[in-house]
């Protein structure tokens, strides 16, 4: 499997795939972060704020962290979490998470003032080419990295449209964060309790049906795999460039254990933790 040459530097004027391959990464370190707050936003969804200026200074939208959620051996492995927002001036990082099992349950026990052991920032974040109009599509907790991305895009003066999907109203995450950035996300829920009834991909299809110049747009997606597959399908059908942020079972987060792999378009395995988590959707096999 061909490895990506991190030292090759950025090369302009290539295809997105080539750009991805050439992207240089700030690769992670082991750090102690201080917990600033850890509060429940809505049933089962939490917002964790940690501070470490070395971390916030190195982090890029779309990268992730490996959190040690226990002192001892249970749970054993670190848990991967996306960087949701980076606050450079305060030296803080925001994480949004959903409690789904033992590890995330343990994460809720961290209180303000406590210290947490993390690895990061890890992986390749979003590639932000200049002068594109961005469409951000998030499902459930997958919205997390898109908040920091929106912030970054707006800083660059770009135009940003956001679409959020959830099973029910309670699962629609990040609304206040996007609103504080001056954005008004379109919303869908499976049960219709908030926004339109249906999938977030229907919102996407509706929006792009009126687009005349696909080259002006870039779709960024993060959420469950079934959703991302559909986002990719819609994007390719409309010839719009698309980046997706994937999840994978992670042992190490460092590209060493080969547990987090996904097949690329040539059916060769690439690692989500090091080659991703953000990929050009056309570089993968769906």
């Amino acid at each position: 499997m061909a490895r990506i040459d991190d030292k090759a530097g950025r090369v302009k004027g290539r295809s997105t795939t080539a750009r991805f391959r050439q992207l240089s990464t700030t690769y992670g370190t082991k750090l102690k972060v201080k917990v600033i707050s850890n509060e429940e936003l809505s049933l089962g969804y939490y917002r964790l704020l940690v501070s470490n200026s070395a971390l916030s200074g190195a982090a890029k939208a779309g990268q992730f962290l490996m959190l040690k959620v226990s002192q001892g051996d249970n749970p054993l492995l670190r848990r991967p979490m996306s960087i949701s927002r980076i606050d450079l001036s305060r030296g803080e990082i925001e994480i949004l998470y959903r409690v789904v099992g033992r590890g995330t349950k343990k994460l809720t026990e961290f209180a303000a003032g406590m210290s947490m052991d993390i690895l990061g920032p890890l992986g390749k974040g979003f590639d932000i080419p200049p002068s594109k109009k961005s469409i951000l599509v998030g499902g459930g907790i997958g919205i997390a990295p898109l908040i920091g991305l929106a912030e970054e895009l707006l800083k660059g003066g770009g135009e940003v449209v956001v679409m959020i999907g959830g099973a029910a109203g309670n699962d629609v995450i990040g609304l206040p964060q996007f609103e504080s950035l001056g954005l008004s996300p379109q919303i869908s829920t499976d049960d219709g309790s908030l926004g339109i009834k249906g999938f977030v991909t229907s919102l996407l299809e509706g929006y792009i049906s009126s687009i005349t110049n696909p080259n002006d747009y870039l779709i960024y997606g993060c959420g469950p795999n079934v959703m991302l597959r559909e986002v990719h399908r819609i994007a390719s059908a409309a010839s719009i460039e698309c980046q997706v942020s994937l999840e994978g079972r992670m042992g190490c987060g460092l590209g060493a254990c080969l547990s987090c792999v996904v097949p690329d378009k040539d059916n060769k395995y690439v690692t989500v933790c090091k080659d991703g988590p953000v990929f050009d959707s056309r570089s993968l096999s769906w």
Partner: peptide, 30 residues
């Protein structure tokens, strides 16, 4: 990491699962 004469693709995913104080892996020698 275990080497073979020819490159190996390994097993399909999920390849690991956490268990009490341990983990199971079936990387498949990629």
């Amino acid at each position: 990491k275990g080497l073979s004469v020819k490159p190996r693709q390994g097993n399909p995913t999920p390849r690991i699962v956490e268990t009490p104080s341990g983990m199971l892996n079936a990387i498949g020698l990629q």
